[in-house]
């Protein structure tokens, strides 16, 4: 290759790659960097109380404040608990639905795909508004029917509110995750099933011995995306809050950070809180990936 084409292709590389990378740096990397720096500073009024307040470097003082605040610790605990409810619920449901639709017995798989995928088009806040009506006895046909036969449940009580929120997230994303898993099921060569049938395997054995092990990479992908998704918990509790006393203004760490920024006027503390949530997200995701990779040599 002559040196002119090499220079030309260097220009092309910049032309292709640079526009995205510049935007990524400005609107993704810079805010994260800014948050990390800001989390190490605090606004203090100057020595004698005269003059404008100034930003002072305070090391990890904001992190200490966040991690010793009982309400923030509670919201972190709540978020972890929510993840422990939501992640298995989502993965089991999505895998179950995908296997059902892919089963030889399923009769209306095409229609079901469309129906299950539809909620993905409903924004989380609107999903929360809709389910909010379905969680209140005065407007909910389900609670009315259940109440009619003597079963009284209040989904928004403090004991069940996390499940009520988990249900909203499940409703929104289960069909989408099912879709990813179905796509990966459809890439399995059908001859494999025929061969297994000739060897006397039933539908049940084909499902557990062939389909589920081959789905493994997609299940891992869905799990990691669900972990990241649960840590963003913000809009649903914000919308449901007026309907119940079980949701406080700092119900999740993200709500707490939002309040610190705009209501309490302490963006430095908010930045520390956001960094803590991001670190927990990385720890969970990489912890999970290490866990499944360590077990890679075994069947599961």
């Amino acid at each position: 290759m002559s040196s002119t084409t090499r220079t030309q292709s260097r220009g092309a590389i910049v032309l292709f790659v640079a526009p995205f990378l510049v935007m990524f740096a400005l609107f993704f990397v810079a805010p994260i960097g800014y948050a990390i720096v800001e989390s190490l500073f605090a606004v203090k009024s100057s020595g004698l109380g005269f003059g404008p307040p100034e930003e002072v470097f305070v090391f990890f003082s904001n992190y200490v404040t966040a991690l010793t605040s009982s309400s923030f610790l509670e919201s972190l605990g709540r978020l972890v608990l929510f993840s422990l409810i939501e992640v298995p619920l989502m993965v089991v449901t999505a895998v179950g639905l995908a296997l059902l639709v892919d089963s030889a017995h399923a009769r209306f798989g095409k229609a079901f795909r469309v129906i299950a995928f539809a909620p993905y088009a409903v924004p989380g806040v609107i999903a929360a508004i809709l389910w909010g009506f379905l969680y209140v006895p005065s407007t909910s046909p389900i609670l009315q029917v259940l109440g009619g036969v003597g079963i009284d449940i209040s989904p928004l009580s403090s004991d069940t509110v996390l499940f009520a929120i988990a249900n909203i997230a499940l409703w929104t994303f289960a069909g989408y995750n099912m879709y990813i898993l179905l796509a990966s099921l459809s890439s399995i060569p059908r001859e494999l099933f025929e061969a297994a049938k000739l060897d006397g395997a039933g539908e049940w054995q084909i499902t557990w011995q062939i389909k589920v092990p081959l789905l493994r990479p997609s299940i891992i992908l869905v799990t990691v995306f669900t972990i990241i998704g649960t840590l963003q918990l913000f809009a649903e509790p914000l919308v449901l809050r007026p309907l119940t006393t079980a949701i406080s203004s700092d119900f999740t760490p993200n709500l707490a950070a939002y309040n610190q920024t705009f209501a309490q006027g302490n963006p430095n503390l908010a930045a520390a809180m956001a960094v803590i949530v991001a670190l927990i997200g990385f720890a969970f995701s990489f912890g999970f990936l290490r866990f499944v990779n360590r077990k890679e040599n075994r069947a599961w």
């Binding site: 990241i228 956001a274 960094v275």
Partner: peptide, 10 residues
Amino acid sequence: LVPATIVALP
């Protein structure tokens, strides 16, 4: 893998 809060607020 980055949650949206740490981008949107700053």
